[in-house]
Design a protein around this nucleic acid. Sequence first.
DNA 1: CATCACGTAACAAATAAAGTTGCATAATTT
DNA 2: AAATTATGCAACTTTATTTGTTACGTGATG
Lengths: 159, 159
Amino acid sequence: MKRDSRLSGVLHVLLHMAEVGTPMTSDALAKMMKTNPVVIRRVLAGLREHELVCSEKGHGGGWKLCRDLETITLHDIYLALDEPTLLAMGNRTEAPGCLVEEAVNNALNQAFQDAEALLLARFRTVTLAQLSNDFHQRMHARGFSGTHEHSIFPDESST
Amino acid sequence: MKRDSRLSGVLHVLLHMAEVGTPMTSDALAKMMKTNPVVIRRVLAGLREHELVCSEKGHGGGWKLCRDLETITLHDIYLALDEPTLLAMGNRTEAPGCLVEEAVNNALNQAFQDAEALLLARFRTVTLAQLSNDFHQRMHARGFSGTHEHSIFPDESST
DNA sequence: CATCACGTAACAAATAAAGTTGCATAATTT
DNA sequence: AAATTATGCAACTTTATTTGTTACGTGATG
């Protein structure tokens, strides 16, 4: 089964937005994420509803964070993405009266629920600020010493 | 994202096979699972490679368990299903040199790996025998007192 | 008022999963 | 042996989901 990388992608976007500071256009973000501007808008529109980002039209417009990095946890973003499925597996529910199904689902649910709870608990403990700090540490570990504009994009135009 | 219910389904099938004792045909199993016989064969063929079930052709043929319920864990079945994806989320890996991506993926991976490990650990602790016992307890709790043939299918022909 | 950028709906393409068909092979029954 | 029953397997079709695209509307800026 294919994995959903929207959370990873959104974090990527938000951190870049935090680095840049000024509003970033859907176009710029789309190029960064190798996707289409409309896709970016769709995703960020959801985050805007949860007041994690703001958008502005016209010249100089675009997307920017509207909260401090310290106050945004991965869990906030998870919620803003509409609580996407965490586990790739689930239970059959096609034989409601079947006691075999009940026994099976009961056993699986215990495992599934615990795994989900673990993930969500982790999400609550990680802030964007921590990720940003981690990023800066990696940057300095790589011997970087200049200003942002020159080196947050190690490859050509990507990231 | 849609959840894969093959593990749940296979457990359902295996427990029914254990109850019945005699070989069950793909046709019978397909009706039980409301799917196509070929789908059943596809899945069980994988389990056969791992020597969890055996198949026999011709009259009186079909599928049966070829190991004791006590010796089969959910983890065995997970392996026999070719280690299907456990988590519905994964990392973007489209900007290999990007330090932001590195920081993001590092944080997510810690959570993801722990959740996977938790699930797999749970899978190792649960045997088919335990599920079977649980099933029988539920059956008796429902006031059942006769022989198997009459009551493991609470609904019409399903389960 | 021209340009830029988001907002949104509707459509198209790509992917993946599940279901289906057809025929071959093997075992059993008569 | 012949008919029947069942799996084995490959190829194909269908369906559902996700992703990408086009087109046009709205609002802000210079």
